[in-house]
């Protein structure tokens, strides 16, 4: 280009030197990270289609392990139990988290707000095994006192540790929301309840959906607390799989894991599409 000034090539080269992509080892590190992240999962998925008994030796393609898992009564019951617990825990924790988020963002600065944050986020900080042991002992005494031995304990326990996961996205959304909108609603004769239902809730919905989904996935995945709290015959999918691993490992476990992975991916995509649609509409 004849009209290019004398300084342009040098500036362009210097800018390229500062680009992270041009630094030595960038590609190698990036590839290594992705391999470590995804190679095990890809291997797991591939061997779920193995025709043989082994989870490490390929013996041809087959979907028979999916059939075996689907027809296994124990798997069916565990899957249903997992879904019931996750759905209940997700619903309870997102309601509690929404109330907590409104309580901590829509009030003036008050004494002990930091303490409240810490209290709400306790499950993120206290080691899960401690909570599990504590719940085991606590629920045992309630069981003795009441004689109740149903799924309620698992639902309550899951709802409790799901609250911070639901709380974080909801609070973030509330903090990003203009509080003047709620004043405007009150100014236009909306009672506090109507202002919440007509203004705050619709605008908060993506945050609540994100929180509920996160809580659902976290609950679905839990092993430690479930293992301690469950009574006999209350296996969820993860604790059932853990139990299977203690015996003979077959690609059935791979098949169940792959199904769980697929469910999570579907949930994530649906949520992504939903929030994208909302954003582009309000742009």
């Amino acid at each position: 280009m004849p009209e290019t000034g004398p300084h342009t090539p040098a500036t362009a080269r210097r800018r390229a030197d500062f680009s992270v992509q041009k630094m030595p080892g960038f590609a190698a590190i990036a590839i290594a990270c992705f391999v470590i992240l995804y190679a095990p999962i890809i291997t797991l998925v591939i061997y779920s289609f193995n025709a043989g008994q082994s989870v490490a030796l390929w013996q041809g393609f087959s979907v028979k392990w999916y059939y075996i898992a689907l027809e296994n009564r124990a798997v069916q019951e565990a899957a249903l139990r997992s879904l019931i617990i996750a759905a209940s825990a997700s619903a309870i924790s997102s309601v509690v988290a929404t109330m907590a988020a409104i309580g901590t963002t829509r009030t003036g600065a008050f004494k002990g707000r930091t303490a409240i944050y810490l209290l709400i986020n306790q499950p993120l900080m206290v080691p899960e095994i401690v909570t599990a042991v504590a719940l085991l002992i606590f629920f045992a005494s309630i069981k003795v006192a009441t004689g109740y031995g149903g799924l309620g304990y698992l639902i309550v326990a899951h709802a409790a540790f799901c609250v911070p996961f639901a709380y974080l996205p909801i609070r973030a959304r509330l903090e990003g929301m203009d509080a003047t909108l709620e004043l405007a609603a009150a100014d236009l004769y909306a009672t506090p309840w109507l202002a919440f239902r007509r203004i705050t809730l619709p605008l908060l919905a993506p945050g609540i959906a994100a929180g509920a989904m996160l809580a659902f996935v976290i609950s679905l995945d839990d092993v430690i607390i479930t293992e301690f709290v469950k009574s006999a015959g209350q296996d969820t999918l993860p604790t059932y799989m853990l139990g299977q691993l203690r015996r003979a490992i077959t690609p059935e476990v791979n098949a169940i894991s792959t199904a769980l992975l697929a469910l999570t991916l579907v949930l994530l995509s649906v949520f992504f599409v939903l929030t994208r649609a909302r954003e582009s509409r309000s742009d």
Partner: peptide, 20 residues
Amino acid sequence: EPPNRRPVNTVFQSYALFPH
């Protein structure tokens, strides 16, 4: 009286139109 019981309306500096 709370704001929703006052026959008074406000035009806010930021307008505060309901985005949804």
